[in-house]
């Protein structure tokens, strides 16, 4: 089974995509990490605690608008102290320094 290697339709877009993909470098994107080195943030913990993406990232990603969010320690702390999202019933989380800093 090699379905994904074959052009499935005759649409010209598919061939263009194929030719671009064959000439693309291994990592065509460059990822820039904006989180400072001394801060720890783990998406998994927040997701498994039931925090929705839109709580921090807004609704933009649903319309394919990415980036532009501004985070600071106050944003984190307010939620960890249980001040924001009261209606969602999120539990207060750790607020000691070494929970997020190293």
């Amino acid at each position: 089974m090699d379905c994904h290697r074959l052009p499935l339709t005759e649409k010209p877009g598919i061939e263009t995509l194929d030719s671009v993909l064959t000439s693309a470098p291994d990592h065509p994107w460059s990822h820039k990490r904006f989180l400072p080195e001394h801060v720890v943030f783990h998406h998994g913990v927040h997701a498994s605690a039931g925090v929705a993406c839109s709580d921090c990232h807004g609704e933009g990603y649903m319309k394919n608008h990415y980036g532009g969010e501004k985070f600071d320690m106050q944003t984190c702390l307010k939620c960890h102290r249980g001040e924001t999202f009261k209606e969602k019933g999120y539990k207060p989380a750790a607020t000691y320094c070494a929970a997020c800093h190293r």
């Binding site: 783990h42 997701a47 070494a98 190293r102």
Partner: peptide, 20 residues
């Protein structure tokens, strides 16, 4: 000495992701 705080932090985050 931080008692390898980063190792504990990483383990804690990974653990809480798997078993909230």
């Amino acid at each position: 000495c931080s008692l390898c705080l980063h190792r504990l932090q990483n383990d804690r985050l990974a653990f809480k992701t798997r078993n909230p």
